[in-house]
Each structure stands twice: as structure tokens, then as C-alpha cells.
Amino acid sequence: MDRTVADTIRELTRRHIADHNGVVVGQCLSAVGWVQNTVPAQTEGVVELPMTDIAGSGFAVGLALAGRRPVLVIRFQSFLWLNASPIVNYAAKSKEMFGYPCPLLVRAIASEGGGTGPVHSHAYHSMFMHMPGLPVCAPMTPGEYEQVWERYLSHDDPLLVSEHRASYKNNRELPDIVRDDAVVTLYAVGPARFTAEQAVADLADRGIVCNLIHLVWLKPFAPSPAQLDPLRATGRGLVVDATYETCGAARSLAYDLSQATGRMVAAMGLEERSPGASPHLDNLTPSAERIAARIEALLR
């Protein structure tokens, strides 16, 4: 079996500890499978934090200032609400405010379904995109994660990595789909990239040909010509992300894409309600069916 995203994160972390005096910090790292097998099962360089969310990210900031290039594991993105302040008010502002860097990689893990319920479901990268000084990305493949890690080591910025448990067993790359006969260009983020793939296939079966562009870097967002030209060609686009739409990543990216091309780009995210723990009350990543229906509506 090829290497999965979880394997990739674990191996990158192991090498970071061994080769760069790096350190990974977080709560309950060693418990129940070392964070879905993404943390190396070792004590060296692995720091179990007490259950103190606000101070915990402050500790990570201090480790960054001490030169340890820490990796802070946030086991549910819901904990980001508590951990946010040192990340955005110290690490992200450090270079602008103090003139010295505070390199910190935040592994923010999103999950959904399975009874995670109203608070522990979903990703919250949109709120971090709002703040200056903090690059935000959402890798979903082994190769993308390697690129993200290389970026962390070769720059001195903090970095918020919006992970999703749905990606951990993924062992394949996700190439863009661009076709000359496409009538709409779909841009997908995070776990919506997997459902978007299915939506594109389903629509193709119904005779609707779509481009699919995978977005990894959410901020700074600098779409390449290869990402913009398909939108120019189709004239219509849709950004889909598994976060809420209002002030969310999908609308922000759609605006930037529209500004860059002069084309109409719509946005799609979660339903505007809290998810429930029971399956019938959940609010999951936009499904292939929802995405396909939205594209069909755009084309009408």
C-alpha cells in the first residue's frame, strides 16, 4: 500500500525531531493511536501538554521563540477557539510587531460525523484567514503535505494547516481536471475535494462537463494562470468548502477568483446551522449530490 497522508505527517514529524531539534506538542498525543497515527510513537521530541488550551498554544509560541520550530497539534478544530489568541496575537503578529519571527506550525484537525456534534465538528480555517501574518493551507494528499512542510521549514512564518481526518487514509494525489468542453469550473477546498471529484464524475454521466481545480493554499491566495484560465474559458465558477459561507473561505476565494478573471463565481459551504450528534441532524461536507445540484442550478 502506498504511503498515506497520516504516514507522511508521521514521517515528516519524526525527521523534524531527529534532524532539526524540532518538537511536537499537544494534548493526549500518545493516547489511542498517536493522533490517528500521525505522531511518531516516541518520547523524544514529543511533549504531552496539560489540558490547558489557551496556555498550551502560548507554550508553543515560547518554544518557537526558543528556536525549536514546534508543531502544535490541535486534535479538534473546535479547540482552536480557545487556542487562537497566542497564535494570532503573538505568532502571527511577531514579525510585524516585534521584527523577529515566531515560526510555529499548527496542525488543526477537523472532523465530522460519527457523533462529533455541534461543537467538535468542522474546520474553522476561515477565521484564521481573517488575520494578517498567518498563512493558511489545507493539504489533503501526501505530496501536498510534503510541500507544506517544506514551506514551513524554508520560511519563518507561523502556518495554520487545516487538516481533515477524511484525508488521513488517502494515498493518492488529486490532479486538477481541465477539459476543453467544460461549461463550469469547480474549485474545491479540504474534504470537499473528495466529494467534488464524485460530483464531477456524476455530472459527466449526465452530460455536464466540469473543470475541477484543487485549492491547497488559502492564504496567501495567489491563483496561477493554470488555475484561472479554466474559469476564464468556462465563464462560470463555484468554490466549495466545508466551512460556513458567511465570512467564510469559499466566499473569500470566490471573490478573489472573480476579481482576477471578471467571471461570476459562486460559493458553497455548510448549511447555516449547527450540526447535531445524531446522524439525521448532522451537517456534513457538501456532498456530491449537493454540489452537483448547485452546479446544475448555476447552469440554468
Binding site: A55, S57, F59, A60, V61, G62, L65
Partner: peptide
């Protein structure tokens, strides 16, 4: 907490 992290 930043100071504690530096001490770590």
C-alpha cells in the same frame, strides 16, 4: 505561558 514555553 510564552515564558514557560521558552523554559521548555
Amino acid at each position: 505561558p510564552v515564558a514557560v514555553g521558552m523554559a521548555m
